[in-house]
Amino acid sequence: MNTMIKSVRGAMLALAAIAVAAPAMAAGEGPHIERQQWSFSGPFGTYDRAQLQRGFKVYKEVCASCHGAKFLSFRNLAQPGGPGFTEDQAKVIAAEYIVPKGVDEYGDPVEGPAVLSDRWPSPFPNETAARAANGGAYPPDFSTLAKARAVASGFPGFVFDIFTQYQEQGPDYIYNLLTGYEEPPEDVELLAGTYYNPKYIAGNALAMAPPLYADSVEYTDGTPTTVEQYAKDVSAFMMWVAEPKLEERKNLGFRVMIFLIVFASLLYFTKNAIWRNVDH
């Protein structure tokens, strides 16, 4: 009885804590972010290889001039579960970039074409140079941005997200940000060098100019070359960069759940077989 009372009391305290936190969580939601349809959503979602290749093209031709991806190796482009490039294609892509190769016998730095084991090169030698080239703003690295940037669902939204296993707030936010640039209202005064975007998580303006324009990147598969399509493709690519093992994780999780269900069933029937004739 005491255990039951403690359990009920603990549940009531937990509900009270959620109720108290709900207004704060709702207030901290930030801008309204419209959810998108992603091929990798849900427990059985997978990456769209064609979309990842298009997103990589957008990143390479537009975003990579300011944003690095320090955890992305060229060999990752040809790995299982990745964009679907062959090893030879990844080698060709890597050879387009010159990266540091250590020092020579005199201690002078040596550079050469990148190979599969090299990481994606940063567009700037250091943070100071990056800020100097961007009006004082530091372009964030793309390696984990799709997992690090998101707008909270608030209460009770986050509860539903737990049960539906919705984890795509990061790509949703990136897509909304890239397509959210607008002319500022008359009553909004922007700082010099900033651009109005009501979807920005840290305010209503940011230092990054609109990076995407229609027909600025050529697609060879007939996909529309619109800002919305570019934004969706590069958001999906950034999700893969941040979580390249997503498909493997979901497959493993499904097998573990099957194992746990079977194991729990065996335990239940074993318990009944052993204790059914024993008085309690």
Score class of each variant (00 low, 15 high):
Val115Trp: 10
Leu15Asp: 00
Val217Trp: 13
Trp38Ser: 03
Tyr196Asn: 04
Gly45Lys: 00
Cys66His: 01
Pro83Ser: 02
Gln36His: 00
Phe259Thr: 06
Gln165Asp: 08
Ser153Thr: 12
Phe163Lys: 08
Ala11His: 02
Phe40Ala: 00
Leu52Met: 15
Ser235Phe: 01
Ile162Leu: 14
Ser153Gly: 07
Tyr213Met: 14
Ser265Asn: 00
Asp187Met: 02
His32Tyr: 06
Tyr200Cys: 08
Lys147Tyr: 04
Thr144Asp: 06
Asn126Val: 07
Phe71Arg: 12
Glu61Leu: 12
Lys91Val: 14
Ala205Tyr: 03
Ile201Asp: 04
Lys57Thr: 05
Val115Tyr: 14
Asp187Ser: 02
Glu248Gln: 05
Lys245Tyr: 09
Ser41Arg: 00
Ile18Glu: 03
Ala64Trp: 11
Arg54Ala: 00
Tyr195Cys: 10
Met4Ser: 02
Glu34His: 07
Ser216Arg: 05
Gln169Gly: 03
Tyr97Val: 09
His32Asn: 08
Ala132Met: 03
Ser143Asn: 15
Ile18Ala: 05
Met208His: 05
Gln51Met: 11
Asp187Asn: 10
Glu189Gln: 10
Lys6Leu: 04
Ser39Glu: 04
Asn126Phe: 01
Leu178Trp: 13
Phe155Pro: 01
Phe158Asn: 10
Cys63Asp: 05
Met1Phe: 05
Glu228Gly: 08
